[in-house]
């Protein structure tokens, strides 16, 4: 639990730091990065069980999967104004390709919702069901990051 608390505090501190910077679209960028962090935290709860670092707990897994689906399904459309890409704003790791012709960022976001829906249906049903549904969510994260997020950490 301490680890989660620490991660929340760290994320909050980082967001506060970003908000102070006088960059365009700071609010939007903070919000979308905060949503990403929120998803990552839920993935972390389930990931620890998948990796065997934490004992499987149906209730905790279900709670995390519910929260993940809620965060995956959020309407983020107002958070992606043109000009808030990684070329324009240092704080952003969102590649300009998101806004370019032929961008399929919308269908990749839908793929995440689908995978998170399946995970939400499976997470409370035992460790094997959790494991099977966890991988596709990771793949959905990765597929979008591969195309649309700057690679450096």
């Amino acid at each position: 639990m301490n680890k989660v608390l620490l991660a929340v505090l760290t994320a909050a501190a980082m967001s506060a730091g970003a908000a102070q910077a006088d960059e365009p679209f700071a609010m939007q960028i903070d919000a979308r990065q905060g949503i990403m962090d929120y998803r990552a935290l839920q993935m972390g709860v389930m990931g620890a069980m998948v990796k065997g670092e934490a004992e499987y707990n149906a209730e905790a897994a279900q709670k995390a999967a519910d929260a993940l689906l809620a965060a995956a399904a959020l309407d983020m459309s107002m958070l992606w104004p043109a000009g808030s890409d990684s070329d324009a704003v240092m704080e952003s790791a969102a590649l300009p390709a998101i806004w370019a012709d032929g961008s399929d960022v919308g269908s990749k976001a839908m793929a995440l919702v689908e995978a998170a829906t399946a995970l939400q249906g499976a997470a409370g049903g035992g460790i094997d069901a959790l494991k099977a549904a966890f991988g596709p969510v990771g793949a959905a994260c990765g597929s979008c990051h591969k195309a649309y997020r700057k690679s450096d950490g």
């Binding site: 993935m43 790791a93 990771g138 990765g142 591969k146």
Partner: peptide
Amino acid sequence: AEYLNSGFTPEYDSAGGHMAL
């Protein structure tokens, strides 16, 4: 090893860009 398998960092961020490949 986990990162090179699933792409997840210990913080459950996931690899982006060419590293995802």
